[in-house]
């Protein structure tokens, strides 16, 4: 074998590996009532950024039944393609249906990353999809960084008290989800993407949908409140709400709460703020004894001014607060009431 031939082999291998190195990123878009979910637009922004960082291509994937207008909406973004699985069996979401629709397509196309919005629906099925196609599974990223030459993802751990930097090992596809608000929906670049059908095999369901119900009947609408006094686990009991209620009354505020307060039955469920409760954006948000788990933060970080009172100076609520007091709310709340009363005298 001559040297020349060997050289040519090396060249062609290089070209091939360059081709292989062109990373493919899929973004699976969630939709509701015929429109893209807000977090789907955030996922597009994340996917576009990841594609740019990896010199790759981002494509969107849509699944459902009767998808023409949604495909048209998705094609308005700067994407290499919008791939659609349109099947009557996908009219309602079931994890079995979504996994059976996506698994063959993922195996065939073998994208490097598949991005999901970190919604309750995605978390219900995408870990299962990862297991099915033997892919890596990286839930709830809040960002990524390749400044060091290595791609590292950040995600909250310890209920948001810490941020972990995570490396993905090994070859093959990785499925990841993007936490709400981590990427701005407005940053999603618009464009003109071609719409293509994505082949699927038999779609099977693994649950029967019986219906939906509203949680807790008459909802108190906290979304219109100008001032919210929100209580966390630090309140310590249903019998200890009095001073906070008094403060709320003085401020003309609605009472809200983080999940542990609701689960403990200290306040009714329609007072819950966060990913499984209401999303609020008042002028003033007083977080009392709330540590600031990410599920709570996503429901209140649109507030104009945030005050946090917590015993733990390391509580993540202080990272989104404008004003912070490290202290026992059972002392600070009566003092605040007194200071406000002094003001009105």
């Amino acid at each position: 074998m001559s040297q020349d031939v060997v050289f040519q082999d090396v060249v062609s291998q290089d070209l091939m590996s360059q081709d292989v190195m062109s990373k493919k990123i899929w973004i699976v878009l969630q939709h509701r009532e015929g429109r893209l979910h807000r977090m789907s637009r955030e996922a597009i922004a994340a996917g576009q950024r990841l594609a740019a960082a990896l010199s790759g291509q981002a494509e969107a994937v849509l699944l459902g039944a009767g998808m023409e207008s949604l495909a048209a909406e998705a094609s308005g973004y700067a994407l290499a393609a919008v791939r659609v699985i349109d099947d009557a069996k996908l009219a309602s979401y079931t994890p079995g249906g979504y996994v059976s629709a996506l698994a063959p397509a993922l195996r065939a196309a073998a994208p490097d990353f598949v991005i999901f919005p970190h919604t309750y629906q995605s978390i219900d099925y995408f870990p299962r999809l990862a297991q099915e196609v033997d892919a890596g599974l990286l839930p709830e990223i809040t960002g990524f960084d390749d400044a060091t030459g290595e791609l590292l993802f950040s995600r909250p751990v310890m209920g948001g008290k810490l941020v972990a930097q995570v490396r993905v090992k090994g070859e093959g596809t990785t499925l990841l989800s993007v936490q709400s608000g981590a990427f701005s929906a407005d940053a999603a670049e618009t464009g003109q993407a071609p719409v293509e059908a994505l082949a699927s095999e038999e779609i099977t369901s693994d649950r029967e949908i019986l219906g939906v119900e509203e949680v807790g009947g008459d909802q108190i609408d906290l979304t219109k409140a100008e001032v919210i006094v929100a209580l966390g686990r630090g309140v310590g009991g249903a019998d200890k709400l009095g001073p906070s209620e008094e403060l709320a009354k003085l401020l003309g505020a609605e009472l809200g709460a983080s999940r542990p307060v609701i689960d403990s039955g200290w306040l009714p469920r329609d007072r819950q703020i966060g990913s499984s409760g209401q999303t609020v954006a008042p002028k003033l948000y007083l977080a009392l004894g709330i540590s600031g788990a990410i599920q709570h933060l996503v429901g209140m970080k649109g507030s104009s001014t945030v005050v946090a009172v917590n015993k733990d100076p390391g509580a993540p609520i202080f990272t989104v607060a404008d004003y912070g007091i490290v202290g026992d709310l059972h002392e600070v709340v009566p003092a605040l009431t007194a200071a406000l009363e002094e003001l009105s005298d």
Binding site: V168, K169, F318
Partner: peptide, 20 residues
């Protein structure tokens, strides 16, 4: 595992709260 935690840190607070 496909994931490896490289480091953990307390979150940066952006502008941060004004502590009183």
């Amino acid at each position: 595992s496909r994931l490896e935690v490289v480091s953990v840190a307390f979150p940066q607070s952006g502008d941060g709260a004004q502590m009183i």
